[in-house]
């Protein structure tokens, strides 16, 4: 019994350490800027919640803030995250299908060409990749935000791993029935992959939403700004005179979509996480 109590205590403390920063931010987003600026950090909600969120949403925070409207930035972030997740899943399904279910000249070369990309995250080759974007005039565009980030081997490897567990006899049966490879892909492989796609989608959506260095580099156009980058631009050098209430409301909105995805799709999230990384 005593050991259970200590477990509860420690877990409670862990949850507190995780939740307190969020609580403080939520509270801050319901007060006025001067209360927070003076440093009178309140611990109970204030009256200005609706007003602050409306101002943050519309980008009408007043004089000192030149932030883009959070509503617009949220749309940009959502488009980027959905585009990255959908793009990665689509190209990976196709290439894993080709590598697993076909025998053709150059198969191993294709596999290794994809596989080596597993090793280098985009941050490592960020400057040369940026120059390629300039050469292709893809900077300041949604395509430029999305397309370079869908080149990665993780999803392909996951699908390959899964496809190898599909009984080979299915292929033979499909052949006997006169079904071609594309029909087999659509009627057998895709339906069997639904849970894997869902699991991967959760992981990739969060990966896309939380991108930072890449959007920071290739987007100057304020109308394409994502919310994570826009949020830190609002802070600047962290001056105490900032309109912190608006910034905090924006921070809450930047966190909400990915956190909601994790909490609501928890089962798929854990499946996706443990299977993509192993």
């Amino acid at each position: 019994m005593r050991r259970d109590t200590t477990a509860y205590l420690w877990l409670g403390l862990g949850i507190l350490v995780f939740a307190f920063p969020i609580y403080l931010t939520l509270i801050g987003s319901t007060h006025d800027a001067s209360t927070i600026g003076r440093g009178d950090v309140p611990l109970l909600p204030g009256p200005l919640g609706a007003e602050n969120y409306a101002n943050a949403w519309n980008g009408t925070g007043g004089g000192r803030i030149q932030g883009s409207p959070a509503g617009l930035m949220l749309v940009n972030s959502a488009l980027m995250a959905l585009g990255i997740a959908a793009g990665k899943i689509a190209i990976s399904l196709l290439s894993a299908f080709a590598v697993v279910f076909f025998r053709f000249p150059g198969r191993m070369i294709a596999f290794w060409l994809i596989f080596v990309t597993l090793m280098l995250p985009v941050e490592v080759r960020i400057i040369p990749t940026f120059q390629v974007m300039v050469d292709l005039s893809l900077t300041n565009s949604m395509a430029g935000l999305i397309v370079p980030l869908i080149a990665s081997a993780t999803a392909t490897l996951l699908f390959r791993q899964f496809f190898l567990t599909i009984p080979r006899e299915y292929v033979e049966a499909a052949k006997v029935d006169g079904a071609g490879p594309l029909r087999f892909f659509r009627d057998v492989v895709l339906p069997l992959s639904v849970t894997n796609i869902a699991a991967l989608f959760v992981i990739l959506f969060i990966y896309g939403w939380n991108q930072y260095l890449w959007p920071l580099l290739i987007i100057n156009d304020r109308s394409l700004e994502t919310i994570v980058v826009g949020l830190t631009k609002m802070i600047g050098t962290g001056d105490a005179q900032n309109e912190w209430n608006i910034i905090m409301a924006t921070a809450v909105m930047a966190m909400l979509p990915p956190v909601a995805v994790v909490v609501l799709m928890q089962r798929w999230f854990i499946k996706g996480l443990t299977e993509t990384e192993k």
């Binding site: 290439s95 080709a98 279910f101 076909f102 294709a110 990309t117 280098l120 370079p148 392909t156 490879p181």
Partner: peptide
């Protein structure tokens, strides 16, 4: 007999990933 044959189709299926990998990975 457990695999499909062909050369053009599998390469076509691989093409999107290979193009993106080439452009944004190997080139940079």
């Amino acid at each position: 007999s457990f695999l499909f044959r062909g050369t053009a189709l599998p390469w076509l299926l691989l093409l999107p990933q290979l193009v993106i990998t080439g452009l944004f990975f190997f080139w940079p």
